[in-house]
Simulated assay, not measured.
Amino acid sequence: MSEYLFPTGEILETATPEFQGALADAYGDTSNRVRCLCKTGGLPMYIAKRGELYILKRMPNTAEEHAAGCDSYEPPAALSGRSEVLGGAIKHDDESGRDKLRFDFSLSRSQRPQMSDSAQASGDSVRAEPNKLSFLGLVHYLWDQSGLVRWKPFGAVIRWEQVRERVLRAASGAEAKSRGLSDILYMPEQFDKDRHDAQEARRIGFFKRFEQKASSGYLLCIGELKEFSESRGAHKLTIKHAPGVAFLMDKVTAGRFGRRFKAEMASWAADEKTRLIAAMTCAIEGGIAHVVEITLMPVTHDWIPFDGAMEKQLLDVLMRQEREFIKSLRYNLAAGSPVASAILTDAGEQGVALFLPPEEPEARIAWAERIEGYSGPTWEWLGGDMPALPMRASEAE
């Protein structure tokens, strides 16, 4: 956990009980900023206020300057698909402090898009134009912003209620077409049988805001997949913590869903520790959710996204060896794109980018071109037996 030097000379961690009060006292002082002590001399920070809560944030464009193990560190954008969408699909508005997002999928009832069978035509599985965020790219953005891509050993087990809280907080810092993302995003509350009636009343009230009319648009839903089945002639999807709520698919959409996400569903069925995050746009009609578009994101039991069996194996090894890392996400880029799988944050101030290069010669050339400008330390696994991981900084000393 990072330490911060306050103008008073105090050095505090975020978990310190006095931290909020210290932020309140330092709020508005731009001549003597709080400094992050992840590196010698410290790096200046700024304080934002949301309601009664004070939030310490890194200065713009300084994410890579922080030490790899710091809470404020972010890997270079070139190591993920983030670099492809920054400034286009994702634009930060300094005045409002929010990110403005543009999507290549519709939130409006004026269009009812069809999910494609083809992985080559599906916006959630190939590189979309950099000025619009794919559906999977949106989920990656929310996971990135919520810190769910960061993993450290010995941390508390993250339950769905923490996932929900983090993602909704991330969504509150973004908007699409002047609508706050958190205003249209439904994520079920952690199921509690003693509070279920109240939870269900809140869910029904939220759905009512999207009842069938042109101005209401589609509801956006993110949850953990529980089941996909056919019952009474209808195809339906259910998510955990929302018992009794069915998300219906027509026959055509269900068929495309089954073909497009066959591999993800098979991986999920084969490994009980794999979770599937489902993100859907839904038309609400008579209180019932009808799926318009959907994407799936496989994640580990600890909610870390992964692409394919080899990357899942790498993440399992990292966790088993109790390493600290940040998972890199591809956003709009196609599966198998030349991005780092993860960045080790316990192997020095720069961190070490972990790569799984493709076997095909043409793909290997594209991979090499993409990381050509990255000068930091790297590690590669070309298949076969996994090479030893870089040593922890504490072991190398």
Rank of each mutant, 00 (worst) to 15 (best):
R259N: 12
A128D: 11
C70E: 03
E18Y: 02
R102W: 05
E175I: 04
E359A: 14
K226R: 14
Q120G: 15
A48H: 11
I326R: 12
E395V: 00
A242C: 10
T281S: 13
S72T: 02
A78E: 14
M115Y: 01
S72P: 00
W143D: 03
L314W: 00
G41K: 09
S83I: 12
A278V: 13
G123N: 09
D71V: 13
I47W: 09
Q120D: 14
S106Y: 01
D194P: 00
S229C: 05
W381C: 05
S267N: 12
R159Q: 12
L138W: 06
K262W: 02
V291Q: 08
K152T: 10
T40P: 05
D93F: 00
E293F: 01
G147I: 05
I304Y: 01
R256A: 01
L133T: 06
L296E: 05
S182I: 06
M310G: 04
M391T: 07
E224V: 14
Y46I: 07
A347N: 05
P17Y: 07
K251P: 00
R195P: 00
V252A: 13
A26Q: 02
V292E: 14
E211Q: 11
L86M: 15
R164W: 04
E224Q: 14
Y331K: 08
S182R: 13
I343H: 02
Y218E: 06
I204D: 12
V157W: 08
I239G: 08
G244M: 04
K39I: 15
Q190D: 10
G233R: 09
L43P: 10
E224Y: 03
M391I: 02
G87L: 08
D250Q: 03
A156P: 03
F261M: 06
A340Y: 04
P305Q: 04
I326Y: 01
G205K: 11
S267G: 15
L333Y: 02
A26E: 03
E13L: 01
A170G: 10
G28F: 07
Q199E: 13
S231Q: 13
S108L: 08
M59I: 06
S216P: 01
A266Q: 14
M45P: 07
S341P: 00
T281E: 06
I239H: 04
S267F: 01
R50Y: 10
T345P: 07
A340F: 02
L181M: 12
F206V: 09
L181V: 09
F261W: 13
W303H: 13
P153N: 07
Y374S: 07
H66W: 07
S122E: 14
G147H: 10
E95F: 09
A396G: 00
A176I: 14
A128S: 13
E13V: 02
S83C: 11
S110H: 11
Q199V: 10
N332K: 06
L133M: 10
M280I: 03
R275N: 11
I90S: 00
T16Y: 02
Q199I: 10
A67T: 04
L181F: 08
D71H: 10
Y374P: 10
R150V: 13
M319Y: 00
N332L: 07
H66L: 08
T40G: 08
H290L: 11
S172P: 01
G348Y: 07
R195E: 15
